[in-house]
Each structure stands twice: as C-alpha cells, then as structure tokens.
Simulated scan of single mutants.
Amino acid sequence: MTVLTGLVALVIQGGWGWLQGELSDPPELMAYAPGLDGCTPRYHDAPLSELHEHPEKVYRSGVMIPTTELWPSINVTLQAKTSEAIAITGAKISVLSTRPLPERGAVVDGEGCGGGIDQRAFDIDLRTNPVSLKPTVERTAQGGVIRSRDFPFKVSSGDPEQFMFNVKHAAGDVRFAITLSWVSGGEPGSTRLDNGGRGYRVMALPKDLPRYSKSEASKGRRLP
C-alpha cells in the first residue's frame, strides 16, 4: 500500500495585487504525490523466517526494485487553487543519497498488477549523472511508437494535470526527490516533492540474495 506523502502548497511569488477592485492572494499550486507504487519485486531487510512470522511486511513494506519488465512509479496530480493558469515548465530529479546494495535480507516478487491509466508519463534513469528524465516512449503491438508529451503544461483550478514518473533504472540503493518548475504571472517558482523529507527510495536488484514469490514469503497467507 502506498504511503501518502504531504500535500505541497506553495504561494506563488509576486506579492499582493488588486484584482477587480478587491485585494487577492497570488494563485497557489497544489501538488499531491503519494509514494512509489507498482508491482515490482521488493527488497526486505529480513530473512524468510521473519517474513513468515510477519506476513504483513510482504504486502505492506519493502523497497521497490525496477526491472526490465516492471518498474515503480510516482503519480503526481497538479492543480491551481484559482482559475488563473500556472505554466509547469519542467522537472528535475535530485539524488539525495546513494548506498551500496544490501548483503542480507530477501527479494520478494510482485504479483497481481492491474492496468494503467493515461497520464503525462516520464522515465527516470537513476544510473546517469545528471539523472535523465525523458518523456516515455511506448511501442504498440503494430510496431508504432507513442511518445508522451514533454513540458510545458498548463494547470488551473478547473484543469488539473496528472503526471507519472516511472523509475526505469537504478544503481545501488538510491533516495531521490522531484522538483517541479513553474511560472505564474511572469514570476518563476518551484515545488519540491520528497516524500515528507525522506526521499523516494528504490534500488537495483541485489544479485546474491535469495528470491521468493509472495506466496512463498508469506506462507500463502494473504492479508485483507
């Protein structure tokens, strides 16, 4: 289950101003970003015996591991508090920490993935420096190519946007943040998404650790 991170609300720069004879605040950008989600394998800092004793860990915790077929995503919803449009001009990924892969614990495979929904999709490659962030490119069954649209985007109170940041690759044990850049009324600003200060954590697949299915790790017990 994903962990809901804080609602980020920043008052856009520019000060007080008169509008239609009334004093009004500058417009605000609201950003809602739950934690990482997906059906990827997960690393658990526990041996199989401990996972058997606490099967809730199998379903409700663990560090997500991007693979060739499966990767975790951060879904971000952006909306302005007023009808005045805010231009979202870009996004930047900042690596907060990098550690070696763990040498103990276990990897549990994901299962039961559902279908996705249409969003503004971008791919993150944490192996590069600086971190690569590019619009997602998908290939259709007929051999065609579908490329997600790139920045800029426009949001207002009646026209929100949903973004999906797919973590396609990681090197080591990484925590990162996303900073969105925007412009309103000619004034620039930024909004930082960092999972309540903890950063979003993913890791590459540890190759020397035991790997189990969810049913093996939880002794076949499925929680409600």
Rank of each mutant, 00 (worst) to 15 (best):
R149G: 00
P66D: 04
S184Q: 14
L205I: 02
R127M: 06
L23N: 06
I117T: 14
G197K: 07
G90E: 04
V8D: 03
Q13S: 15
V8Q: 11
V63D: 11
A80S: 15
G199D: 04
S61R: 04
L48K: 09
A31G: 02
Q119I: 13
T191Q: 10
F153N: 08
V145M: 13
W16C: 00
K134S: 09
G158N: 12
K214C: 08
N129C: 03
F122D: 05
T77L: 15
N75W: 11
M203Y: 03
V202Q: 07
E53N: 11
P102W: 07
T40Q: 12
S181I: 07
D208A: 13
C39Y: 05
W16H: 03
A85N: 04
V174I: 14
L48T: 05
D208S: 13
K134C: 00
R60G: 06
P224R: 09
G90H: 04
H54P: 00
G116T: 14
E111C: 09
A171Y: 10
P41W: 10
T68Y: 08
Q119A: 15
T67Q: 05
V76K: 08
P26C: 12
N129K: 12
L7M: 11
Y212W: 11
S148C: 09
I12Q: 11
G144D: 05
Y59S: 12
L70G: 00
T179E: 14
L101T: 12
G186C: 07
W182H: 14
V58Q: 05
T40H: 11
M164R: 15
G62P: 13
R149T: 07
P224T: 07
H54D: 14
V137P: 00
I65P: 07
L78G: 06
R60N: 12
V137N: 01
P188L: 05
H44T: 08
L96C: 03
M30N: 01
I178N: 02
G185L: 06
A46Q: 08
E56G: 04
E56S: 12
D25P: 00
V183K: 11
D159Y: 14
G199M: 13
K214P: 01
D25S: 13
L70H: 09
H44E: 07
L193V: 04
L223Y: 02
G158I: 05
S132N: 06
Q119T: 15
P160K: 03
Y212K: 01
E111G: 07
V137F: 00
T191E: 02
I88L: 14
I74Q: 10
K81Q: 09
R104H: 09
D109H: 10
A106M: 06
K168P: 00
V174W: 02
Q162E: 15
N75V: 13
K207C: 02
